[in-house]
Write a protein that binds this DNA or RNA. Structure first.
Length: 289
DNA sequence: TGCCCCCTGCAG
DNA sequence: CTGCAGGGGGCA
């Protein structure tokens, strides 16, 4: 579920609230959710938090790392020991009770306890996500990490063009291929292509340098906007930030989940939904050629 | 490069 | 009941 902007939002919160905190316990509630030597994190302090594409990395001193991937439905929720009760929070468009105060839930897969009394819950409905405990070297050696491509703002438009002109597959799949470009997922790929007025199924090799430059700008634009609005929380409310609150980018979706609605360009087009690479794909047939 | 799979849960 | 969900790995 979460893409770069959602993970970035959580990263910034972790840096603010978790750095310096000592882990006193890690409960593994589901065997698939935590991999590695659980005991080795006890007594360690969080010394830093990084993001690599859609993955989070908590530094536990110089050598130990705690890598977290949310995949489709992961969440990290921090419940501070001195927190105030929160009421009528809006989750998925509906006011709810204080669900954060009722954690753990049936989807809680791991619980961190800190010396301060703070508790951090790793929730993951679908159990695709994971927490890996490993050394910094083991982390660097993960095939997934070794193959991870650059983030969009770390390459030039020209480099994006060079990367595109060698691929015959649909441009949307190129944008989402983490080995070519990291951080872009289904929501932001759809919206970036709308910004650039490019049909998602166009073979990447068919786009020219001008389109590549525009697409580069568009990808960065929607990612930055996603970060600005604290990520996207769709109606199912699976993405939540560290406070258990949703983001707001969904109020600014260009195409994602907007099928059969009017194109925001008011060009008379209607957003159409198709499938590409097995993923829902949204675009305006009128302005995206 | 294209499929199927990993899982749970929800809408249609 | 089927299909679908913001991700990625493994297989042909």
């Amino acid at each position: 579920m979460p893409e770069l902007p959602e993970i970035e939002t959580v990263k910034l919160q972790l840096q603010k609230y978790l750095v310096g905190q000592e882990i006193t316990k890690l409960d593994q509630l589901h065997p698939k959710s935590v991999q590695g030597e659980v005991k080795s994190v006890v007594g360690k302090k969080v010394t830093g938090v990084e993001r690599k594409g859609k993955m989070l990395v908590l530094d536990l001193g110089k050598e130990l790392r705690l890598a977290v991937h949310f995949k489709m439905s992961g969440q990290l929720i921090l419940v501070r020991h001195n927190r105030q009760k929160v009421e009528n929070r809006v989750v998925g468009g509906h006011p709810t009770e204080d669900w954060v105060g009722k954690l753990p839930s049936k989807h809680t897969r791991a619980i961190f306890q800190f010396r301060s009394g703070d508790l951090m819950y790793f929730n993951d409905q679908r159990i695709f996500g994971w927490i890996k405990i490993l050394t910094s070297k083991q982390l660097a050696d993960l095939p997934f990490i070794k193959k991870l491509g650059p983030e969009p703002w770390d390459i030039t438009p020209k480099q994006l063009y060079e990367l595109m002109r060698k691929r015959k597959k649909a441009i949307k799949l190129v944008l989402m291929d983490q080995e070519l470009l990291s951080g872009v997922g289904n929501i932001y790929a759809n919206d970036a292509l709308w910004e650039a007025k490019i049909d998602p199924k166009t073979p990447a090799v068919k786009l020219d340098e001008v389109q590549a430059k525009l697409l580069h700008q568009s990808v960065i634009k929607v990612l930055r906007e996603g970060i600005k609005y604290g990520g996207a929380t769709a109606a199912d409310a699976k993405y939540m930030n560290l406070d258990g609150l949703g983001g707001h980018y969904q109020d600014h979706f260009r195409t994602y989940s907007r099928d059969s609605q009017k194109c925001l360009r008011r060009d008379g087009g209607v957003i159409k939904k198709t499938t590409l690479g097995g993923r829902g794909t949204y675009f305006c047939p009128k302005c995206q050629k």
